[in-house]
Amino acid sequence: MARMHTRRRGSSGSDKPAADEPPEWSDVDEDAVEERVVELAEQGHSPSQIGLKLRDEGVQGTPIPDVSLATGKKVTEILADNEASPELPEDLRNLMERAVRLRDHMDENPGDYQNKRALQNTQSKIRRLADYYRGDELDADFTYSYDTAVELLDDA
C-alpha cells in the first residue's frame, strides 16, 4: 500500500514478538503499574511517553516491557478508567503541533514551497483524523483551523 500523500511505498517495520503473558522477571503487581501510569500522566506525559518510561525505568526498579500484558489494559484504557486521559488524542495533538510549527515557519519564510505543501498535507491529515474522532473524543461541531489549534495547544 502506498503512502497517503506520495506514490512511494512505505518500508516495512519490525513486529513485536508474539507473547501471551509477561516475562517472569517482570512480576510487578497490576495495581502498582496502574498507579505509576496515572502518576506519570499527572506529570504531563503522553501515553506513548508513559510506555517508554515504564519500559526504561519500570515500577519499583522492575521494567515493564508491555503494559497491556502486565495489566490486561492499554495505557489509554487505564487513563480513561482513572479519569486522567488527555483532552486531545495523542496523534491529533502531534499533528496540530506540527501544523502550528509549519504555519509559523511559513509566516517567516513565504517562499518555502516545500513546507507550504507539507503544511497542506498535515492539515489534510488533521481534518481526516478530526472526522474520525468527531463525536467521541471531540465535540460534534469541531472544525480545524489554525486559531483553534493554537488555542487547544495553549490550554494543555
Rank of each mutant, 00 (worst) to 15 (best):
K16S: 14
A41Q: 05
Y146H: 08
A19Y: 08
D141T: 02
F142D: 00
I126Y: 02
R55D: 04
P47I: 01
L40I: 01
N82S: 10
D136R: 08
R127F: 00
E87M: 07
P89M: 06
S46E: 12
V67N: 08
V37Q: 09
A118Q: 10
E83D: 15
P63E: 08
P65N: 09
D112G: 04
D155K: 13
L119M: 05
A19T: 08
A18G: 07
L119R: 09
G13Q: 15
A2P: 10
I78G: 06
S48A: 11
G10M: 15
M96I: 03
T6F: 03
S124R: 07
R98C: 07
G135H: 04
Y113K: 15
L95I: 04
A130N: 00
S48M: 09
K16W: 11
G44I: 06
A149G: 05
L52C: 08
D29A: 10
R8N: 11
D15W: 09
L152W: 14
V75W: 08
N82M: 01
E108Y: 03
V150R: 13
L138Q: 02
R55A: 10
R103N: 12
T148V: 12
G51T: 06
E57P: 10
L102M: 00
L54T: 01
G61N: 12
Q49H: 11
R101T: 13
R55K: 15
L40Y: 05
S12N: 11
L138K: 02
L69S: 02
M4T: 13
Y146W: 06
R9I: 14
D139C: 00
L152M: 14
G111S: 12
R134S: 09
F142Y: 13
R134D: 00
D154S: 07
L69E: 03
L138W: 04
P63Y: 08
Y132V: 04
R101N: 13
V67Y: 09
